[in-house]
Design a protein around this nucleic acid. Structure first.
Length: 259
DNA sequence: ATGACAATCAGAGATTGA
């Protein structure tokens, strides 16, 4: 089973790019972030016509996540538990019913800039809620994974210019520590289980020719629970998507699971 | 230190992103 995460930076602006990608790359499951659309305006029929079931958790203008799947989805839930007052659409879960069912959590973690400040406090509080949800999922002792735009640069090797991010919400020690706490629970970062070394990125800013200079950062991740990590065949970044016409500033990241 | 670029909502320019 091939699963991809992709921050599409607006489904309305990216629909042609998205449809062509679904046709050409054909993920079994696509986990999307920043759909920037309410559920009613999401182009679900165009995607259903390609053989996908579509589950969205959208909001007006910003944020918004979705799961597209060629396999049936069960037990869909929306919103990260732990704060009923949080109205930002950043979390969706569903169980993908392949040969081995896998619980998939799609997340769009808050950016957090400027830091310090209320937006950074929201990011850290959101990660605390994520930590709790992740623990609960592990307790089930069945295959599960967390994937999406984490807005975290895990280590210096995950940025072309690490010095540019030391005071940024994506690279601050508290951000990295919260990410490590997830790993320390027993989650495996799929990409680093397969690929070592610097120079692998999933985001390049639209500005200042960042793509042409390969001035990127790796912030889109797969965290696999133990039962899911046992199924990992491969993990890779589809970086060539950044060079196509009308690209998102993120590219898809993939896992192949024996599930 | 800031802007560079892009998307959204709105129908200009502010807001958000990373």
């Amino acid at each position: 089973m091939k699963i991809a995460t992709f921050n599409i930076n607006g489904v309305k602006a990216r629909i042609e790019t998205l449809l062509k990608w679904l046709e050409d790359s054909a993920p079994d499951v696509a986990v999307l972030q920043e759909i920037k659309s309410i559920d009613e305006n999401f182009p679900r029929e165009l995607i259903e016509d390609l053989g996908y079931v579509v589950e969205t958790h959208g909001q007006k203008s910003f944020n918004g996540v979705a799961i597209l799947s060629k396999l049936p989805l069960e037990d869909v839930s929306r919103g990260l538990p732990g704060d009923d007052s949080d109205e930002q659409a950043r979390w969706i879960e569903a169980t993908v019913m392949g040969d081995t069912p896998v619980r998939i959590c799609g997340l769009y973690l808050p950016n957090g800039n400027p830091a310090p400040g209320p937006k950074y406090e929201y990011k850290l509080a959101w990660m605390e809620r994520l930590d709790h949800r992740a623990k609960t999922l592990l307790d089930a002792e069945t295959p599960c994974l967390l994937t999406g735009d984490f807005n975290i640069i895990p280590q210096d090797e995950d940025a072309k210019r690490p010095e540019a991010w030391v005071n940024d919400a994506l690279g601050l020690p508290a951000s990295r520590a919260a990410f490590r706490r997830l790993l320390n629970q027993g989650y495996t970062e799929a990409f680093r289980a397969r690929v070592q070394g610097a120079g692998h990125y999933s985001f390049w800013d639209y500005q200042a020719g960042a793509w042409d200079r390969n001035d990127g950062i790796r912030i889109d991740h797969f965290l696999l629970g133990p039962e899911c990590a046992d199924l990992l065949n491969d993990c890779w970044i589809e970086s060539e998507m950044r060079g196509r016409s009308k690209p998102s500033d993120h590219v898809p990241v993939w896992v192949d699971l024996a599930a």
